Amino acid sequence: MQKVKKIVLIFFITILSSCVSKKDIVYFQNDKIEQAKFSNSYKTIFKPDDLLQITISALDIEAVKPFNLPAVNYSSTTNTVIGTPQQQAYLIDSEGNIDFPLLGQLKIAGLTRSETISLLKNKLDPDYVKNPTINIRISNYKVTILGDVKQPGTYTIPNERITVLDAIGLAGDLNISGIRNIQVKREEGNKISTYNLDLKSNKLFTSPVYYLQQNDVVYVQPNKAKFQSASYNQNTGLFISIGSVLISLITLIAK
């Protein structure tokens, strides 16, 4: 009888206990790095499906009007403008081009913001606009955080600059069951590249995906215990209760 009780006790201890080592959950504990190797420089690179808001300004207001066309909706009955006009946005197509007023198609994908501004200035000055000031922002800049975090989802980033740690913070941080080794999926050219990051290592700060790009996907994999617990069915609590009753009965009978 003692042997049966020991087996049952070991069984329940195995199920209910969960000992997590500090080394498995603490961030930035490994691999010291030299500060000189850490760079906070970041460049946005435009990609197909980016929706750009491009504003051209100059001293000659009339000269820039054709390049700041408003997007409007018209009533089908009165043929008048409905609502407040919004600035026209430019979608980078699958070939990497935008169709810009008067200038026609321009190859934008693969360029940084400063390179795109230089391209537009060279096209506009001096034939169309003298000394133009150009502002460009991505209106649909977003990243997605999936897996074992508190609030998975897709997040719009208004300032176009976000680190992988910022993204995890937006999602409410990792659950205690989240593995500190995470993946970043990034579309590069015509393929999806996968980068592995270890949140326990300071080498994270020197990774090429420490700064996320638009449409990056961050995936946090659950640990082994989380996988195992997901395999238990809805009646696990009932079975444990029945087991407890059986143990009590066995104990009473053995007395």
Score class of each variant (00 low, 15 high):
residue 25 I to G: 08
residue 213 Q to G: 07
residue 188 E to A: 05
residue 54 I to Q: 00
residue 233 N to G: 12
residue 58 A to P: 06
residue 162 I to Y: 06
residue 130 K to L: 13
residue 165 L to W: 07
residue 203 K to A: 05
residue 96 G to I: 04
residue 48 P to C: 01
residue 80 T to H: 14
residue 140 N to D: 01
residue 221 Q to Y: 11
residue 64 V to Q: 05
residue 190 N to E: 07
residue 213 Q to W: 12
residue 123 K to P: 04
residue 97 N to K: 13
residue 151 Q to F: 15
residue 124 L to V: 03
residue 19 C to E: 04
residue 29 Q to K: 09
residue 57 S to Y: 08
residue 172 G to R: 04
residue 98 I to P: 00
residue 149 V to I: 06
residue 205 F to P: 05
residue 56 I to D: 06
residue 100 F to C: 01
residue 165 L to H: 01
residue 186 R to F: 03
residue 129 V to L: 05
residue 62 E to I: 10
residue 185 K to S: 12
residue 53 Q to T: 02
residue 23 K to D: 15
residue 72 V to I: 12
residue 219 Y to V: 08
residue 191 K to V: 08
residue 27 Y to M: 12
residue 67 F to D: 07
residue 247 I to E: 07
residue 197 L to W: 06
residue 60 D to K: 12
residue 92 I to L: 01
residue 21 S to A: 14
residue 8 V to K: 06
residue 175 N to P: 01
residue 11 F to I: 10
residue 65 K to M: 10
residue 67 F to R: 06
residue 141 Y to A: 00
residue 8 V to T: 08
residue 17 S to H: 09
residue 238 L to S: 11
residue 254 A to D: 15
residue 250 I to G: 04
residue 209 V to T: 14
residue 180 R to N: 08
residue 52 L to S: 00
residue 240 I to G: 06
residue 209 V to H: 04
residue 68 N to P: 08
residue 11 F to H: 03
residue 237 G to N: 12
residue 83 G to H: 10
residue 156 T to P: 01
residue 211 Y to I: 01
residue 216 D to Y: 07
residue 65 K to I: 11
residue 76 S to C: 03
residue 31 D to T: 10
residue 238 L to C: 04
residue 200 K to F: 05
residue 211 Y to H: 11
residue 128 Y to G: 00
residue 116 T to I: 01
residue 229 S to T: 12
residue 202 N to A: 05
residue 60 D to N: 15
residue 104 G to F: 06
residue 254 A to G: 12
residue 181 N to K: 15
residue 238 L to A: 13
residue 178 G to H: 02
residue 172 G to A: 08
residue 133 T to D: 12
residue 170 L to K: 09
residue 224 K to E: 14
residue 6 K to E: 13
residue 103 L to W: 01
residue 179 I to V: 14
residue 136 I to M: 03
residue 43 K to A: 14
residue 124 L to K: 06
residue 14 T to N: 08
residue 240 I to E: 09
residue 68 N to E: 07
residue 113 R to T: 14
residue 195 Y to D: 02
residue 211 Y to N: 07
residue 19 C to W: 10
residue 214 Q to C: 10
residue 62 E to A: 14
residue 162 I to H: 04
residue 83 G to K: 04
residue 117 I to Y: 06
residue 254 A to R: 12
residue 41 S to V: 07
residue 33 I to A: 05
residue 244 S to G: 15
residue 170 L to E: 05
residue 109 A to V: 01
residue 1 M to Y: 14
residue 79 N to W: 12
residue 101 P to L: 08
residue 148 D to F: 09
residue 127 D to E: 13
residue 236 T to E: 13
residue 120 L to H: 10
residue 17 S to P: 03
residue 148 D to I: 03
residue 59 L to D: 15
residue 131 N to I: 09
residue 227 F to S: 10
residue 46 F to M: 02
residue 184 V to H: 07
residue 90 Y to A: 00
residue 102 L to N: 02
residue 197 L to H: 01
residue 127 D to F: 13
residue 94 S to H: 11
residue 247 I to C: 11
